[in-house]
Structure formats: structure tokens, C-alpha cells
Design a protein around this nucleic acid. Structure first.
Lengths: 214, 214
DNA sequence: GTCTATACGCTGATAGAC
DNA sequence: GTCTATCAGCGTATAGAC
């Protein structure tokens, strides 16, 4: 606690995972070598093995560290009493768009897909400790609004499909086409987020819309 | 034309790309070796180099072949006169869900993300020859319905965000968690598709819904 | 905790016989 | 067109000095 470094990497271990995460996101797991990592960290390859038993363990540390605390902000939104339900939904969307598109954690999905067969335990951990928690939290926020009478009853699985789908896909598109110089015009975050949340709120609140719903 | 084989691989080259595509989808580009490929194809490694100059060219052939003709079915939907606009949308969704989740072409996205920095031309080609064409086709189908008066005017960028997003994300989720034995209960295709298309059609046709729209 | 040195299998790729 | 044989280099990982 004495003097905290400016970087969020407290120990050397943290510095390494932080650098490694950036490299893994850029070149994939198999495409990133321990030599690459050592060079990027400014140390020798052998020194990496002092901090981690092997490449796979290092990777697991990156993923695990990626989603630690990722749920805090959205949990606060759920817990607060100082917001209307519609504003909670807007704040939730701000959170989700940010954590999925800008923060490392949301950009991990293609990486998990790459290693899903060779490290199924990593995929399982990512699912249980991130995807599912996030999903449950959003579900709770919606259902609280339904209980309040602010929102209409919903098919929650379909609604979550419509909430998370566009966000994750936008993140994936921006990874796939990261080298395009017109990426921000082709795949803009702000305007799509605004239109997305407006549509979801209309689904949640427009009585005429709900009539045919099961 | 004389006697066509049952497989869609006409030549040996096609057999190789077909096998290679499956391997690349399973283990990624960097994670798949030419030895793996040779073994899976039942030939020796050196023979692969008779058909393709190198690993990267083989990969490009897989991707290119993946989306050749992928647009035919959806183009037919657009062209036909024998369907109502709402049925065209439903048929389009059937197409999109199938091509994105089951066919190789739609499952390529995480692969493209993996190689996007090292092979930006592949990403560009995938975008121009598949993503953009598919997007334009769906846009045309929607706008035709608007012209007919069957659909209400739309913010088309946001609407496409809401159409493609959930589909691509469902595909990605099913790749990430392919090893789960409850994958079909957690990430079911049919029920999410049905709810998704119903919601989109309500957005397209419900007057009360459109009032606040730009 | 970081270094140099090294082991050694596997990588993509080539040469040349059949 | 497929094979055997072979290459140089890079891959992860380890041993042991400082």
C-alpha cells in the first residue's frame, strides 16, 4: 500500500501478463512466441520461466486477470437506488460497450475460440467467471425493472441475445478489420450504441410492441 | 461434367482446402502445421507444396473458397417475386443463421481476427467479398419492403447492427464453448432465431414503435 | 531474479528420385 | 503428383552461473 506504481501492474508478474495480453490479442496464442513475449517485456526468455511454469500457464494468468473485477461496475449499477430503470439500462449499455470493445476482457473472445479445443478448461472458466456473471447481472437489472412495472414482461433469453449479440459482434468486427483506415466510419461505436439502446428501451416499454409476445 | 464426385471437392486441390478448412477452424492458423494437414489429407507434407506454394497461400485458398457462392441463396430471395416481404425476411434469417453458424464461411470470423494483423489483405478480401456483400443484400431486401409500404422507414445501420450482431455472436459463442456438453441448451439456434426474427419483424411493422425514430 | 548457454523436437520449405 | 530425405531456423523449456 505504501507507494503504488502508476501502472496497474503491481508486481513483475503483473507487468508480464499485461504485456503478454496485448501480444496475445494481436497475434493469437499459437502466433505469439515466448521470445516475442520476452522481447516485449525487456527481459530474457528464460526469465519468463521463473514467473510462470510454461506458456499455457502464462496464458491462463492473462485470461484470468483479464476478467477479475470486470463485473464490479455493472454490479454497482444494479445495486444503486439513485437511478431510474431506464437510466440503469443506459448505464449498463455504456459499461458493456466499453468493457467488450475497449477493455482487453471483451476482446478475448476470438482468443478463447482459438484455444477452446486444446484448453477446454480455459473456455469453461471464461464462461463461468465472466460470460455467465455478466449475463446474470443484466438479466437481474431487466427483471427488476419488470417487477417495478417500468418494463414489460420479456422473453429474457431472446432479449439477452439482442443485447449482447450486437456488442460482441461489433468488437469482433473491429478486431477483424483493425487495419482498415476507415474502421471508425465503418464500425462506429457511439452511434450504433445509441441506436441499439434506444431500440432495446422501446422493446422494454412500448405496449403495442408487447402484444404478440409469449 | 462427365461424372461428378459426391464430395464438393472436384479436384485434389479442393479436397485439400476442404480438409484444411476444418483443421484451421479447429486449431487456428498458427496452431495448424503442414504436417497436421498432410496427415489429415492422407498424403505427405511435401506433396502439399505441389498444390500450394506455401502455408499462407493454402490458407487464403481456404478462405476464398469458403465464401465463393455463399451469397447465391440470399440473392435469390431478393430477386424472387413469389414471396411477401415478411416472408423474405424470414427466409433471409434462415439463410443467415445457417451460413453463419453451420457453414464454414460464417465460422471463419475468429480465424480472420487471428490473422488480421499479419495478413491484412485477407481481412480486406473477406470484408469486401463476403461481409459487405451480405450486408448490402440484406439492406436491399429491407429497403424493398420499405418502398412497398410493407415496412416502416428505418435507421438501416442500427437495424443491420441488430440483425447481424446476434447471429455472429451466437456462432462465436458456439465456437468458444464447443466442448460443453450442454452447448445446445445454453446456446440453442432455433428458439433464438425464432425470437430474433419475430422481434425484427415487429420493429419493421409496428407503427407505435417507429414514432420516436429519426 | 536475471542472465548465458544449450537441448532437442518440430516448423515451413526444398531437392530430386520415381 | 507423390514420394523420401534433408535443411536451417525457431519453438518451448531447462541447467546452472551470478
Amino acid at each position: 500500500m505504501a507507494d503504488v506504481k502508476k501502472t496497474n501492474a503491481a508486481s513483475r508478474r503483473g507487468e508480464i501478463t499485461e504485456t503478454a495480453t496485448a501480444l496475445f490479442l494481436e497475434k493469437g496464442f499459437a502466433g505469439t512466441s515466448m521470445s516475442d513475449l520476452a522481447q516485449a517485456c525487456g527481459i530474457r526468455k528464460a526469465s519468463l520461466y521463473h514467473h510462470f511454469p510454461g506458456k499455457e500457464d502464462l496464458f491462463i494468468a492473462c485470461v484470468t486477470e483479464g476478467y477479475s473485477g470486470a463485473m464490479d461496475e455493472i454490479a454497482q449499477i444494479y445495486a444503486t437506488d439513485a437511478m431510474e430503470d431506464t437510466d440503469k439500462v443506459r448505464a449498463t449499455f455504456d459499461c458493456l460497450y466499453h468493457s467488450t470493445i475497449e477493455a482487453p476482457v471483451g476482446r478475448l473472445s476470438p482468443l478463447i475460440a482459438e484455444v477452446s479445443r486444446s484448453m477446454p478448461n480455459v473456455a469453461r472458466s471464461f464462461h463461468n467467471n465472466y460470460i455467465e456473471l455478466q449475463r446474470d447481472m443484466v438479466e437481474k437489472i431487466i427483471l427488476a425493472g419488470v417487477e417495478n412495472g417500468a418494463f414489460l414482461p420479456q422473453d429474457i433469453d431472446v432479449l439477452l441475445h439482442l443485447i449482447f449479440g450486437p456488442i460482441v459482434t461489433l468488437s469482433l468486427s473491429r478486431e477483424m478489420f483493425a487495419t482498415f483506415d476507415d474502421i471508425d466510419e465503418r464500425y462506429p461505436v457511439q452511434s450504433l450504441k445509441d441506436g441499439h439502446v434506444d431500440t432495446i428501451l422501446r422493446i422494454l416499454t412500448e405496449p403495442a410492441f408487447a402484444t404478440a409476445q409469449g
